[in-house]
Amino acid sequence: MAELRFDGKVVLVTGAGRGAGRSHALSLASRGAKVVVADPGVAIDGSGFSAGPADEVASEIKAAGGEAVACYESVSEEQGAAAMVQAALDSFGRLDAVINNAGIAKPERFEVHTADEFRRMIDVHYLGTVYVTQAAWGHFMQNGGGRIVNTVSEGAMGTLPMMTAYGGAKGAVIGLTLALAAEGPKYGISVNGFAPRVASRMSSPTVLGHVHDLPPERFSPLGNVFPPELCSPAAIYLAHEACPLNGAMLVCGGGQVMRMGFKQNQGLTSANLTVEEIAENIASIADMAEAADVEVGMASRS
């Protein structure tokens, strides 16, 4: 198969200064894309600021013969999100795809989490994705389409403890992704999700040791198993115009890629459904062995 190139295309990557975002940006540039490297250089909890990470990635792309522009705005602010899209238009005259990758983390037990920590996760993960996508959406509508790749997480599926704030916010991103996928095709816009399995600041041995209440050194080998470069291929593919998917979520990392999603079974039908009937049939109601995928946009076509 021929290499999937991005020659002449412009892609905005948020959180592109480090980790998976950096890997996405470098891979896109190596395939011919012009890249907006958006990153305010914050700490893992969202505090602070540094132009360094975005500048370093943009400089690395340019040194390799590619084209890139650094942007230091925050996705948690509407004007910042709009400025990222405008940076693409001002620097390169167009925008073809967005990878919403920016994120923060502060894993903690539910009873310890503060309301402000929940709000911060929503501001960055969910509203940040909303703001950047909305800033790009109108442009895509006017220009015949585009591609949105939203970074979701298996953490929203209850796979780990201490994920109520982070996983809850990522769950909101999943809902947004699938709901937007039902609207996008009308304008030639595809919207998909990408869940990285990656060793990063947000999944460092120290963080994972805290989450699992185990010695951090137990998780040190994961850095070799899940480098950022092995999660990026799925995100890059979803951003390419050749990808036929819409409303799909791909998990990728460690040399493996798979699809995750929602399923629904036939359940129980009764003309006069009662609590007792549910109790009597709960085993078959809960059985997902023959469940089918929930189809994006299904309700609008019924």
Rank of each mutant, 00 (worst) to 15 (best):
A20T: 12
A88D: 14
F110Y: 14
V75M: 05
S47G: 15
T206D: 13
T177I: 04
S47F: 08
E154S: 14
G65F: 12
H24P: 01
S203R: 01
G48E: 04
A199D: 12
M260N: 11
V124Q: 12
A20W: 00
D45C: 01
Q142P: 01
N192Q: 15
R147Y: 04
E290V: 09
S91N: 08
V57S: 03
S300M: 11
E67V: 08
V275G: 15
G17C: 13
G261T: 06
Y126M: 09
A156N: 03
Y131P: 02
G209D: 09
A81R: 00
I44Q: 09
V36Y: 02
A70P: 05
G261H: 01
Y126N: 00
L28F: 08
A43E: 11
G66P: 05
S50Y: 01
M84W: 02
D55W: 07
G65W: 07
E60T: 12
N192T: 05
V191P: 00
G175V: 02
G19T: 14
A68M: 11
G128D: 10
L127G: 06
E73G: 03
A291V: 08
E183Y: 10
P205R: 03
G15T: 09
H113N: 07
S232M: 08
P40K: 14
A248I: 15
H139I: 05
G253E: 02
I282K: 06
A239F: 11
A82P: 03
D90R: 06
A283V: 06
G41P: 06
A51H: 11
R5N: 05
G261V: 06
E111S: 12
P244D: 02
F118E: 00
V152M: 00
L208Y: 03
A54M: 09
